[in-house]
Computed example of a mutant assay.
Amino acid sequence: MSDEKLVYDGWLKIYNKNINGKTYDILHNYDAVAAFVTDEFGDILMVKQFRPVVMKETLEIPAGCLDVEGETPEDCLIRELKEETNLNVNKNALNKIISYTPMLGFSKSILHLYHVNIKKSDLKNNKIDDEDVREVLWLDNNTFKKYVKDGKIFDGKTIISYLYVMNKKVFD
């Protein structure tokens, strides 16, 4: 037997859920999408943005929330790539990696990961007029690995996508 009580009602919603006398905090948030974008040289497209939760700029793959009613993950990703990187990507360029639940302990939101391969010349400008993204940049494979090892890249979706794409033959 369980019941939920809304305890915070903002962009995110938090409920207390009572199950057999124990209270759990349950986060209701949006599903999301992310794109691991590579070019013909194997370089990886990253976005630099300020994240208030860690109070610093991070390097991550482009991503966003499914917060438009009725929008599919693919349409959301195309919109987010345009907003965050100014890239125009066609739906058939999206290659699904995996959908998973990254915060299973307190949220059932799903993150949909995709791989997109483009030409480096498709990125016209690395200065973006986006409220979150401050810069778009390419990293070569060795720099990416070094940044992960040094803790400069610590975002889960970015690291999971990299491991999948670099080890694709293992998963096929």
Score class of each variant (00 low, 15 high):
Phe41Ser: 12
Thr72Cys: 04
Ile19Gln: 12
Asp9Val: 05
Glu60Ala: 03
Arg79Val: 04
Thr23Ile: 15
Thr85Met: 02
Ile19Pro: 01
Gly42Leu: 06
Ile14Cys: 08
Asp25Asn: 13
Glu84Gln: 14
Glu80Gly: 01
Lys48Ile: 08
Leu77Val: 11
Ile44Trp: 00
Ile78Ser: 07
Cys65Gly: 00
Gly10His: 05
Val37Gly: 00
Glu69Ser: 12
Gly42Ile: 06
Glu71Asn: 06
Ile19Asp: 08
Ile19Trp: 08
Gly10Asp: 11
Lys13Ile: 10
Glu74Arg: 04
Leu77Ile: 07
Ala63Trp: 08
Leu12Cys: 11
Leu59Lys: 02
Leu81Ile: 05
Glu80His: 09
Phe41Glu: 14
Leu45Arg: 04
Ile78Tyr: 00
Leu45Val: 09
Asn29Tyr: 12
Val53Met: 10
Phe50Ser: 12
Glu74Pro: 06
Arg79Pro: 05
Asp43Tyr: 05
Phe36Lys: 01
Glu69Thr: 11
Glu83Trp: 07
Tyr24Lys: 14
Ile19Cys: 10
Gly21His: 07
Ala63Pro: 01
Ile44Glu: 00
Gln49Phe: 13
Leu77Pro: 03
Leu66Asp: 00
Leu12Val: 13
Val33His: 00
Lys82Gln: 12
Tyr24Gln: 09
Asp39Asn: 14
Leu12Asn: 12
Glu57Leu: 04
Thr72Met: 02
Asn18Tyr: 13
Thr85Ala: 14
Glu60Pro: 01
Ile19Glu: 14
Thr38Tyr: 05
Val47Pro: 03
Val37Met: 06
Val68Pro: 02
Leu81His: 10
Pro73Gln: 04
Lys13Thr: 09
Tyr30Phe: 15
Asp31Gln: 08
Pro73Phe: 06
